[in-house]
Nucleic acid binder design. Structure first.
Lengths: 233, 233
DNA sequence: TCGAAAGTTTGCGCTAGGACAATGTGACGG
DNA sequence: CCGTCACATTGTCCTAGCGCAAACTTTCGA
């Protein structure tokens, strides 16, 4: 296997303060891994043996209920750490990680988490910042689920997807990985039927455009309007 | 003001590994503070100037929507750290903290967070563990809100309250701080009316017993049954 | 090239639970 | 002791959105 290039990491937050040799050390201990769309990187409840950096693609963080229903907690984009259970004092992964598109990740044995945070300046801070951002995002989810209607939640979910993992095209912004109505319903706590109806309605109004597994937002601003709670006055 | 006694902290996780003198140092830098029921310890969005340890009482972590609705994210019991924004790389508090009962807390300037984590063994780990537990709890909230009916959510919320902050009495387990239907509805994303109806129904069945601002669970096991998703078969 | 599987759309009926409204009741300050 | 306020209960109505069901379409493997 050929050596990984240092440029992979140099500009990423967890490593941006580090020198060439330090990055070399880190890379030499990493195991790169490919995952196809739908592959599971790790399972909820499994012993947290490794932590990861997503180099390319997208990963979905999913929890499953006793009844087998899936709930998507958040999405992770390239450049971010994930599976960092150790940062939170967990022995096991609290949720599953599933590749939302074909992805490449670097993995390290979890015991190195403590080495890395102790040794490399900025690494710990960056990791905790990541945790903080996710905490913030999940808080928002809770508030949304507690206060908003389904249409607003789906609009918000879609807006989040295009801002965080959208691909700009000449016709609008497209979600950068294959996504089904079912996926969107698992992000918003509704059914694929309702999502389908909403997307159909939005498509009629020219706000979105979608083909099987692809969703493109033509009028983000319109979607923002839909995402806001209905004004009564 | 008289000196705080070291025994306040010795057995609490963040400090359990520390010696007498270290605890003394920590206490000497703390500012104790009383809060009456309903007082706000800090506001969402406010600059995160201090972090706290709850010595006695209960604190509610609340977020507010643009429309002024409150959503209770979680509750904190005595012995726990809170307002630890710095642990997550936040400059501002991501939510408000409101005293759910008369409480006493110790506060430290936020810059000491870094000193404490660097200086005192076990302190950092304990703080991150706290964050991890809360993350886990919020995950569960998201899953509940996405998959369960209102009755199940309220039952779950009540179960959580009596396990984490319940007071055993001879007639059952009582929520250990004043709590209204409104409060419970803000924890579960429903209305106070629906909560009232549920509690009335449960009271008729002898599962709970409630007077104004007090809720006692007589039959926790029955409540557990209600908290589980309806079995169809 | 064809069939099956996966994803999507749409119709219809029903109900959980929200909105609105009115009344009841315990607590507390003057 | 009384008035007021905060909290609680309950009834009635109504609709968002789920469950169920059927049909359609795209993709992909044999």
């Amino acid at each position: 296997m050929r050596k990984l290039d240092e440029s992979l990491l140099t500009h990423l937050p967890p490593f941006s303060e580090l020198g060439r040799e330090q990055i070399r050390e880190i890379l030499d201990r990493a195991t790169p891994q490919r995952y196809d769309t739908g592959d599971t990187v790790f399972h909820e409840g499994e012993e947290a043996g490794r932590f990861f950096l997503l180099l390319d693609g997208y990963v979905r963080v999913v929890r499953m209920t006793a009844e087998g229903e899936h709930v998507t907690v958040l999405h992770i984009a390239a450049g971010q750490l994930f599976g960092i259970a150790a940062a939170l004092g967990n022995e096991r992964y609290p949720a599953s990680a599933v590749a939302a598109s074909d992805t490449i990740a670097l993995g390290w044995p979890m015991r190195l988490w403590h080495d890395f945070t102790a040794t490399y300046p900025g690494f710990a801070a960056s990791g905790y910042k990541t945790v903080g951002n996710r905490m913030e995002e999940i808080h928002k989810r809770v508030v949304e689920m507690a206060t908003q209607q389904v249409e607003q939640r789906v609009a918000n979910a879609l807006l989040r997807l295009i801002t965080q993992m959208g691909r700009r095209t000449d016709a609008g912004i497209e979600v950068d990985f294959p996504i089904t109505r079912q996926d969107l319903s698992e992000m918003t706590g509704t059914t694929l039927h309702t999502v389908s109806r909403l997307l159909s309605a939005w498509e009629k109004r020219g706000i979105v455009e979608s083909k099987r597994k692809h969703i493109m937002v033509r009028e983000p601003h319109q979607l923002v309007m839909l995402a806001e709670p209905a004004v009564s006055s």
